[in-house]
């Protein structure tokens, strides 16, 4: 790697992400890294470890637990949490759960707002976090294309599109007043293909749900829903059947649809992705609401 002055695009992205991660570690009092257990989180964590090697991560991971993730995802999380260099905080919106909010009886919007967005705000306020890393990428969705790497949030955790700071060169502005915070996106310039390619090259572990396997599914609203446990009440005439499916993105069960797939290895996943004719967010019920739904969610404090 060392001989030519030329960096590959992945090396360049890696160097940029590490620069961003270190900048936060150097300037924030109490940063956390949002850890959603998906592939983007896996890459972000891997980069953070590289950023501080041979030292340790100087900040904890924060997992917002809706309690509605797949079992396998929780197992994966617990394995990561048990690693010696990891300090993982888990936060749930206890009031929301006590009120019985869930993705089966409530709309995806309500579920996400209470168990994800509200939960996140609670956690950030509780730990007085002024900088939180997130794994979002600009290529995920049209309206994310203009998102800053350092995205400023006011005291109510709201994103004010009129009040974002210009970002020039690699000179990020991490300043916040008391109670305000910054969301930082080290993977801003990565594409889905870059992420998979990097996972492959660096041999980064990701949950097995990304790989194809026989799983019990039902067809619902045009989505393939995997029946992960008995919390999913089956509707009239619904009969789970075994199909070879996998996930492109790991949202909340049962809001995230699976795709039919034979891809069992990373190269096969990448191959499939190259042939795919739809973007990864399509599998998420929450994004279907309105054209600019992401904007609204962000303004409310969604990641």
């Amino acid at each position: 790697m060392g001989e030519s002055p030329r960096m590959t695009h992945l090396e360049a992205l890696e160097a940029e992400s590490i620069h961003i991660i270190r900048e936060v570690a150097a300037t924030a009092q109490r940063p956390v890294m949002l850890y959603s257990i998906g592939k983007d989180s896996a890459v972000m964590l891997h980069l953070a470890r590289k950023a501080f090697a041979p030292g340790r991560l100087p900040f904890p991971l924060l997992n917002i637990d809706t309690t509605w993730k797949f079992r396998e995802v929780y197992e994966f999380r617990d394995r990561v949490a048990s690693e010696p260099d990891i300090d993982l905080i888990t936060h749930r919106n206890v009031e929301g759960l006590e009120q019985g909010i869930n993705p089966i009886d409530h709309s995806p919007g309500v579920h996400t707002d209470v168990l994800k967005t509200q939960a996140l705000k609670q956690a950030l306020s509780k730990h007085r976090v002024e900088a939180a890393f997130g794994g979002a990428r600009r290529d995920e969705e049209r309206s994310r294309a203009k998102e800053r790497v350092f995205s400023f949030r006011d005291r109510q955790h709201r994103w004010d599109p009129k009040n974002q700071r210009p970002e020039l060169w690699n000179l990020y502005n991490p300043r916040v007043a008391d109670g305000e915070s910054i969301r930082v996106f080290p993977l801003s310039n990565w594409t889905e293909l870059d992420v998979w390619q990097y996972i492959h090259l660096e041999d980064i572990p990701v949950p097995a749900l990304y790989f194809s396997a026989e799983r019990p599914v039902v067809d619902r609203n045009g989505m393939l829903i995997v029946v992960d446990d008995d919390r999913l009440p089956l509707e009239e005439g619904e009969e789970p059947r075994m199909e070879r499916v996998r996930f492109r993105t790991l949202g909340c069960y049962p809001l995230t649809g699976a795709i039919r797939s034979e891809a069992e290895t990373l190269p096969e996943i990448i191959h499939e992705m190259l042939l795919a004719r739809s973007s990864e967010r399509q599998g998420r019920a929450i994004d279907h609401d309105a054209a600019s739904s992401m904007e609204q969610k962000k303004q409310q404090g969604y990641f």
Partner: peptide, 9 residues
């Protein structure tokens, strides 16, 4: 993958 790995930016 091999080709993609060697691209620059």
């Amino acid at each position: 993958l091999d080709q993609h790995r060697r691209k620059d930016l």
